[in-house]
Design a protein around this nucleic acid. Structure first.
Lengths: 331, 331
DNA sequence: TTGTAGGCGTTATCAA
DNA sequence: TTGATAACGCCTACAA
C-alpha cells in the first residue's frame, strides 16, 4: 500500500465537498454540519490522508516547531534540560528541532540562521556563554527566544536560570562549617554564570573570615579528565574540600583522589554542582547542588509558549530555586 | 533592525533581475553570469535576505531534514548514537528533528506520523524493539528509513546493528576463562537484540561445558536501581561474575556490591555491555563490551543519505564490529 | 544567460 | 454552513 501524495483535493472529491470544507474539519473549525464532517472524516480515513505540514506552514506562517540549540546532546546536563523542554513542547503540541552548537560561536550562528530559515515559531537557546554576535542575532529577530541556563547581561532576552551566586555561596558555606580548606572548581570565567559563582564563593569566605586565595580557584574545567588531573594539585595545596560546578569534573576528581588513597568524605569533601545522574552513580555518591535541570527546560519552554502565543508575561527573567542534596561525599 | 519577510522578489527588484535568476544564485546554479551573480549577492546582503526553507520545501518536495526517533534523549546510550547521526547529518547538510518516543508504541506511531507530515526526507529509528504496527508504518512509507540499533526480523528495512550475539558470547567466555560462575543481566526478552544475547551466552556456557541455569539470567533490567537491587540476589546465589548489557545497571550493581563489602574485581567480576561514559567514570572503571555507538549513528545516517539520494546500496543490513575494553572490573 | 508562468498543498478572505 | 479564489515564497520547466 504505497502512498502517493493524496491532497486535500482528493479528500474533497471523495467526500463530495469543497476543499475549504475539508480544511475546516481538519482544523477543527466548528462551522461544519455534523453530517458533512462525518463524510469528510470517512474520506480521510479511506484515503489515508495526512495533512502536509510544510504547505500548512507556508500558508499559515506557523510551523508549530521550536528550535533548540544546545552545546552537545551527549552531556547529561543539557540532555536533562532538553528533556524538560521536549515534554512541555509536546504538551503544547510543538515539535522540537534540536541542533548541536558545540559551544562554538560560529556554529551557534549558523544553527540559529537555519532555524530562522526553517521558520520555527520560537527558539530556546542553551549555552554557557552568550557571545555578542549571537546575542545580536537573537535580539534582532522577531521570533520569540528564551535563554535556558544562559545569562543576557542586558536582560533584553527572556531567560530562565538558577541562582548560581547563591548556590555557590551556600555550598562553600557548608564546607567551611566543618572547618575545611575549600577550593572552587568551575568552567570558564568568560561565562557570566561562573563569574556569579566566583562571587558567591568569595562572599562565603569573607563571611567566615577566611582570606580568599586565588590559587584555590580552578578555572576552565569541564571534563572528567580535568577532574582527574586536579587531584594531585589539590593534595599538594593541602586542600581538603572542593565545590565543583561541573559534575563530570567532580567525578573525575573523586575517582582520582580515591585511587591516591584519599578517603572521601573523611579526608576530603566534595560538593558537585549539577546533581546530574552522575552524582548518584559515583561511589560514594556525591553531595550536590541540585539544579532543577528538567524544570529549567520545562519552565523555559513554558515561557516560550507564552511568548509565541503573545500571552501576557509578567516577568521574563526567571530564577529557579535550587537546593543541596546531601549524599556521601560530605560529612 | 526588525526583519519583515523579505522575499526573493525583493532581492530581484533591488538587483534588477528576475526572481528566477535570484533563485539560481541562491541554489548555486552555474548558469549565471558572474557579474549578475555579484549584483544578486549584493542585494541579498543589503536586504539581509534569508531563503524560506518552508516555501522551498513545498516547491521542491525536499526539506533537507531527517527525523530521528529515540526512546529518550537522557540516555547516554542513545545520546551517543544521536551524536553520530547528527554529525553525519550536518556533514551532508541535513537538519535533524529529534523526538522522544519513551519506548512507547503509541508514541512511536505518533512521532513517525508527525515526521511524515513534516515531509522529512528520511527517518532514523532507534528503539529496543520494533512493534508490528510501527514496522508496518515504516515499511509502508516511501520515505527512506534506517533502523539504528534495532532489528527487523524480516530484514525488509535497512538497519545498522552490533553483533549482539557474538558480543555476549565473547564476554561470557572471557569470564568463564577465570573459572567464574557467571550471571547474565539484560533488558526485556521481547527485544530481538536481547534474545540474541541470550543465545550467545548459552553458547559460551555450552562450549565450556557449564550447564545453563535459568536462575542466573536476569531479564528486564534497565535502570541503576535495578542494578542495585540485583546485588543481594547474586550474592545469595554464589554468583561471582556478570555480564550486564545495560551500563546503568552495571554501575548500580557495582556500587551496591562494594557497599556490601564485595571486592571488584577480586571477589566479583563485571563486564558492562555498552561502554558508555558511565563505564569510565565508575570506580573501579568497568571492563566493557565496546559497542561503537557513535559509529552506529554515523553509519546509520550515512546509509540513510544513500537511500535518500537514491545511490546504490550493496548491503542494507549492516553489522558493526565491537570489542572488549579491559578496565578494572575484571582480572 | 535570463525571464515567464505554472505549480507545490494549505490557509484564509469573501461571497453566496 | 459552504464554496471560490487569492495568497504563502519558492522551484522549475519552457521560452526567449
Amino acid at each position: 500500500m504505497v502512498e502517493s501524495t493524496t491532497t486535500i483535493y482528493d479528500v474533497a472529491r471523495v467526500a463530495g465537498v469543497s476543499m475549504a470544507t475539508v480544511s475546516r474539519v481538519v482544523n477543527g473549525n466548528a462551522n461544519v454540519k455534523e453530517k458533512t464532517r462525518q463524510k469528510v472524516l470517512d474520506a480521510i480515513a479511506e484515503l489515508d490522508y495526512r495533512p502536509n505540514a510544510i504547505a500548512r506552514g507556508l500558508a499559515s506562517k506557523r510551523t508549530t516547531t521550536v528550535g533548540v540549540v544546545l552545546p552537545t546532546i551527549t552531556s547529561p546536563y543539557f540532555a536533562a534540560i532538553a528533556r524538560g523542554i521536549d515534554d512541555v513542547a509536546s504538551m503544547y503540541n510543538y515539535n522540537v528541532v534540536l541542533a548541536n552548537s558545540d559551544n562554538d560561536e560560529e556554529k551557534e550562528g549558523k544553527v540559529i540562521e537555519s532555524f530562522l530559515s526553517k521558520q520555527v515559531d520560537g527558539i530556546v537557546f542553551m549555552g554557557s556563554s552568550l557571545s555578542e554576535s549571537v546575542r545580536n542575532q537573537l535580539v534582532g529577530t522577531r521570533t520569540p527566544v528564551v535563554l535556558a541556563g544562559a545569562i543576557d547581561g542586558d536582560k533584553e532576552l527572556a531567560s530562565v536560570n538558577i541562582d548560581y551566586h547563591k548556590a555557590a555561596y551556600e555550598a562553600t558555606k557548608k564546607l567551611l562549617k566543618t572547618g575545611k580548606k575549600v577550593a572552587y572548581v568551575l568552567g570558564s570565567l568568560n561565562d557570566a554564570e561562573n563569574v556569579e559563582r566566583m562571587v558567591g564563593y568569595q562572599e562565603a569566605l569573607e563571611e567566615a573570615g577566611v582570606k580568599f586565595d586565588e590559587a584555590l580557584v580552578f578555572e576552565g574545567n569541564y571534563s572528567y579528565e580535568n577532574g582527574r588531573n586536579l587531584a594531585q594539585h589539590l593534595i599538594d595545596k593541602n586542600v581538603n574540600s572542593a565545590v565543583i560546578s561541573v559534575d563530570d569534573v567532580a567525578v573525575g576528581l573523586l575517582n582520582s583522589l580515591q585511587e591516591k588513597g584519599v578517603k572521601v568524605p573523611t579526608d576530603f569533601e566534595i560538593i558537585a554542582g549539577s546533581n546530574s545522574a552522575l552524582t548518584q552513580y559515583s561511589f560514594p555518591a556525591l553531595t550536590s547542588v541540585n539544579q532543577p535541570l528538567y524544570d529549567l527546560g520545562a519552565v523555559s519552554m513554558r515561557l516560550l509558549t507564552k511568548l509565541m502565543l503573545k500571552e501576557e508575561v509578567a516577568e521574563s527573567q526567571l530564577i529557579l530555586d535550587h537546593e543541596i542534596i546531601n549524599r556521601r561525599s560530605t560529612k
